[in-house]
Amino acid sequence: MPAEAPLPPISRRHTFNVVFGGLLVFAWIALWLWERSPYGRYLNHAELGGFGHDPQSVSVLTQAALYIAGWLLMTTAMMLPTTLPLLDAFRRMTARREDRHHLLALVIASYLGVWLAFGIAAHLFDLGLHEAFEHVRWLQENPWIFGAGPLLLAGAFQFSKLKYRCLDRCRAPVGFVIQHWRGGNAAVQSLAIGAHHGLFCIGCCWALMLLMFAVGTGSVGWMLALGTVMAIEKNVSWGRRLSTPLGVALLVWAAAIALNHAWTWQ
């Protein structure tokens, strides 16, 4: 039988958009269902203080796996949409290769792998804070710090040079792919593209992602709100202009928490 004719560029792009959109829809639906399941607590990092003491007698290893799986699902739903321009540029760059689907999967896997490493580090840091809270009386008397602190950090970071340097790299996906697609081992290069893009993505979004530990982690509504903000910043033509008002809003929010605490203690 004659070989199947390759899909025209428009059909390939349509197929890519359908598959990509289907993956995101699946991730959001899975989050919504998980949030309402008996294991919804594993999406909420506020519950990390009880790590290892699950009332349902779940092993520590299983609890750790559930937290990691929850984080990976959250980053898939929240951060993968921000990579659409990069993935589309890479898809076009490798459109004539027979292994193009495999290479694209490697880019996605390495990108999510970097975010998974960040999530593990953030979880460990959060566990340390919970441990400190149990032993430091001042923190127990001032729990508002855990709300105002991440907001203050995220708001201040919106005005940093590092934020804009990383954001600019994320907003130029075609140049990024061309710079990193240097030939040689295609699989290794694909992994490198996903990992490097993930590092720049963390560089511009890490402070906002840490808000997940302060403003309703485990809430699909908050995940959707933060994910939308980060997608606009990276993908929309006017997205860069969102950074300053967002930073101001976060700083005002942090100040409001601090002032409310001061007023309460008067």
Results as ranks from 00 to 15, higher is better:
Trp144Leu: 03
Leu250Asp: 04
Lys163Tyr: 14
Gly216Glu: 00
Gly203Ala: 09
Val188Phe: 08
Gly198His: 09
Gly184Asn: 13
Gly227Met: 11
Gly247Met: 11
Ala156Phe: 06
Thr244Asn: 07
Ala154His: 02
Gly221Thr: 07
Trp144Gln: 06
Gln158Lys: 15
Arg165Cys: 01
Leu224Ser: 09
Thr244Tyr: 15
Pro143Gly: 03
Lys163Val: 14
Gln179Tyr: 05
Gly183Ser: 11
Gly227His: 11
Leu151Phe: 03
Trp253Thr: 12
Ala154Glu: 00
Asp168Gly: 15
Arg137Cys: 02
Leu211Asp: 01
Val236Lys: 11
Lys161Asp: 04
Lys161Glu: 05
Leu208Asn: 09
Cys201Ile: 02
Ala192Ile: 14
Gly183Leu: 13
Trp181Asp: 09
Asn185Trp: 03
Gly194Arg: 08
Gly147Asn: 00
Ser219Met: 10
Ile178Arg: 12
Ser190Gly: 01
Gly221Tyr: 12
Gly149Met: 08
Ile178Asp: 11
Val188Tyr: 03
Val215Tyr: 06
Glu233Pro: 10
Cys204Lys: 11
Leu226Lys: 03
Phe159Ile: 03
Ile232Thr: 15
Gly184Arg: 05
Arg171Thr: 09
Trp222His: 07
Glu141Phe: 04
Pro245Ile: 10
Phe146Leu: 14
Leu242Ala: 12
Glu233Tyr: 01
Ser243Thr: 15
Cys170Tyr: 05
Arg165Ser: 07
Gln179Cys: 01
Trp138Gln: 09
Met230Asn: 11
Phe176Met: 03
His135Arg: 14
Val177Asp: 05
Ala172Gln: 15
Met209Ser: 03
Val252Lys: 08
Phe213Pro: 00
Val248Pro: 02
Glu233Val: 07
Met212Arg: 03
Gly183Tyr: 10
Ile145Phe: 06
Met209Trp: 06
Pro143Thr: 04
Cys201Asn: 06
Lys161His: 13
Val177Trp: 08
Leu251Gly: 07
Thr217Ile: 06
Asn185Thr: 08
Ser160Trp: 07
Gln140Phe: 04
Val220Cys: 01
Asn235Ile: 13
Gln189Trp: 02
Gly147Trp: 06
Leu246Gln: 08
Cys201Arg: 02
Ile193Phe: 08
Ser160Ile: 08
Gly216Ala: 01
Ile232Gln: 01
Gly227Asn: 13
Gly175Cys: 00
Cys204Met: 15
Cys166Gln: 01
Trp206Tyr: 13
Ala214Phe: 00
Leu211Tyr: 00
Cys170Gln: 11
Val188Met: 04
Leu242Asp: 01
Val174Cys: 00
Val229Thr: 12
Thr217Ser: 14
Met223Gly: 11
Cys170Ile: 12
Ser243Tyr: 06
Val188Asp: 04
Leu162Glu: 12
Ile202Trp: 09
